[in-house]
Design a protein around this nucleic acid. Structure first.
Length: 619
DNA sequence: CTGGGGACGGGGCCC
DNA sequence: TGGGCCCCGTCCCCA
């Protein structure tokens, strides 16, 4: 039954030259590539995000790795790659990505012909020898000099330059030289001639079979998209479901100071949305929409020379069927259900504009708030999916704000004092979405919480924030400490046994605000920041502020749905190594946390803690 | 319906 | 800067 086709397919994959022509499906590679490209345009199974300038591209690690050893080394450990904008622009990368997936140099959005010099530079940088050679050939033919000739010999085998890698990633992409020689990326030997016949189609997908596994993790039940960059996820299916991230500017490194509560994003622009959804390639004037995956779902870009018609039903349909479901998850179906429900959401805060009533935490009155949030990006984070999880409130009308309002607290935003973690210590300077009118700030959407002044722009807010002296902040904070913290937190610490035993080592560095001591001044400084009201590290997506860059980076990862840590057992993915470690106990059955009162054992300490509360709470 | 347990997401913070 | 740990909150399942 299937043996015939399978055998043929195998031959094609294996690329056996000695197979007779009747044993080969000549169009196989083309079809495969077509499917991959189509999946890319839909974001289906995309498991890596490439950020270039202001643009985000989604792609498949396997394909990238198969076409470039540079990418191969990067995607090995990173799901988010930030390319050196000196070497490649978003427009050029768009072309390159198209090239990788089609073997053709597609016309760019630029009216002029492709600039082969910049392409050559980028191709050299990205170690795409075939493309580089093609560019050189084109330049040679055109009689133009080309500068990047040093890449010579198509640059094959040359490891990425470390300094480029060093700038390469927000979430560090720094595994230079990690090229797996065993598998040798399948780089085509024959060059496409830019445009031409079928033979010129570049077969890059040859190694796609290497790793059809492990892509992405969970799949959006609606779209089949992986929870990486986020599918539109709208359950109502409107607006094309799996819209892409639009207008995101993630390339900016977090500015050190002052905070800029408003995301660095262009305003919600229907035109952009429309563009992206209808396949307009990025334009110079509207760089944000560069996601190549935003091409029309109806079969590629307008410029797309490949004819996808008629193939979708036959092939993609198969691919997006049940196979699009995540691998069998944990032992009970509920886990699986939860996973498939949550992850896609985790992948993308961007689609929330379509998410309807299931908005972020604030409550019913915040329904549809996403439309008012700049860029249509909801702060609601990840994971929360439906109930507006613990995080997601911040810069907008947030739970914290509501609570403050409820209890009439005027702690000037120093909620961090009570209850310690979580959202309670949210942004002190916050952006108020337009239309959120439960507090009379009028048009002044940017509010300094400590003094309750509103400002019409983030710049003005920032300027104002700087007028708060550090001392002033400290004084206020001190007051908060005297009145605020204590009880609950300490109680919790009592329960969680180990906690701070500062006696062991000398800790000469004492915090001037609280009584904590530290071994070194750097840690003390870090700690003292927790007393500031300013939070120097804003999330570029939701504007939430953080005291530590690492926390912000981690937070960003949740926006992007990046879950680098995968469980070998069940495929479940996590944003943090620690979570994976914790999770692995589910499989190993290890329960290291034991209740001293009843002997109950737990895999997670937090569950032991809540269990202990059960013992201690009066009931 | 409720309480307990299992599991997970997010933020804070120390190292 | 990232890892590790802690805490809070939440969802789901099950008895």
């Amino acid at each position: 039954m299937v043996s015939g086709p399978l055998a043929l397919r195998w031959c094609a994959w294996a690329g056996r030259g000695d197979m007779g022509p009747d044993m080969e499906l000549p169009s196989h590679s083309k079809q495969l590539l077509l499917q991959l490209n189509q999946q890319r345009t839909k974001g289906f199974l995309c498991d890596v995000i490439i950020m270039v300038e202001n643009s985000i591209f989604r792609a498949h690690k396997n394909v990238l790795a198969a076409s470039s050893i540079y990418f191969k080394s990067l995607v090995l450990h990173d799901n988010l790659i930030n390319l050196d904008t000196d070497m490649v622009s978003s427009t050029v990368f768009q072309q390159i990505l198209d090239f990788i997936y089609t073997g053709k140099l597609l016309p760019s959005d630029q009216p002029a012909e492709p600039n082969f010099n910049t392409l050559l530079t980028a191709a050299s940088y990205l170690q795409l020898p075939e493309l580089a050679a093609l560019c050189r050939r084109k330049l040679k033919r055109a009689g133009k000099p080309f500068g990047a000739g040093r890449v010579g010999a198509a640059g094959v085998g040359r490891p990425p330059r470390s300094q480029r890698l060093s700038t390469a990633s927000v979430i560090q992409a720094r595994y230079p030289g990690l090229v797996d020689g065993r598998k040798g990326s399948h780089i085509p030997q024959e060059l496409p001639q830019a445009k031409g016949s079928d033979e010129e189609e570049l077969f890059l997908a040859g190694s796609a079979q290497e790793g059809a596994h492990g892509l992405g993790g969970a799949v959006c039940p609606v779209s089949g998209e992986v929870g990486l960059g986020g599918c539109g996820g709208s359950t109502n299916g409107s607006s094309g479901g799996c819209e892409q991230e639009l207008g995101l500017d993630l390339s900016k490194k977090s500015p050190p100071l002052p905070p800029t509560p408003g995301p660095h994003l262009t305003p919600d622009d229907p035109a952009q949305l429309s563009d992206s959804q209808h396949g307009s390639p990025p334009s110079a004037s509207a760089p944000p929409v560069a996601n190549s995956a935003s091409y029309s779902e109806l079969g590629g870009t307008p410029d797309e020379p490949m004819d996808l018609e008629g193939t979708e039903d036959n092939h993609l349909g198969l691919l997006e069927g049940p196979s699009g479901q995540p691998r069998k998850s944990l032992r009970h179906s509920a886990r699986k259900k939860e996973w498939s429900k949550k992850e896609p959401v985790a992948g993308s805060p961007f689609e929330r504009r379509e998410a309807g009533p299931k908005g972020p935490g604030p409550g019913e009155e915040s329904e549809g708030l996403g439309d008012r949030v700049p860029n249509g990006i909801l702060a609601s984070g990840v994971g929360g999916g439906s109930q507006g999880g613990p995080y997601g409130e911040p810069p907008y009308p947030c739970k914290e704000e509501e609570e403050n309002g409820k209890d009439g607290s005027d702690d000037s935003g120093q909620s961090g004092s009570e209850g310690g973690g979580g959202h309670a210590s949210g942004a002190h300077y916050m952006y108020r979405p337009e239309g959120y009118d439960s507090v009379p700030y009028g048009d002044n959407l940017y509010v300094c919480i400590p003094c309750a002044k509103g400002f019409p722009s983030s710049e003005q807010l920032n300027a104002h924030v700087e007028t708060h002296t550090e001392e002033e902040l400290f004084i206020k904070e001190e007051g908060a400490y005297e009145t605020g913290s204590g009880g609950a937190e300490e109680e919790a610490e009592d329960l969680s046994a180990p906690s701070a035993s500062y006696a062991a080592e000398p800790r000469p560095f004492k915090c001037s605000v609280c009584e904590k001591t530290y071994k070194d001044p750097a840690t003390l400084r870090q700690h003292e920041k927790t007393h500031w009201l300013t939070r120097p590290f804003p999330c570029n997506i939701c504007g939430k502020m953080f005291t530590q860059r690492g926390t912000m980076t981690r937070h960003m990862r949740s926006h992007l749905g990046l879950k680098p840590f995968a469980c070998d057992e069940c495929g479940m993915r996590f944003t943090r190594q620690y979570r994976l470690t914790e999770h692995m106990r589910v499989h190993s059955g290890e329960k290291p946390y034991e209740c001293q009162l009843c002997g109950g054992k737990f895999t997670q300490q937090r569950n032991l803690i809540s269990h202990l509360r059960m013992h201690t709470s009066p009931s």
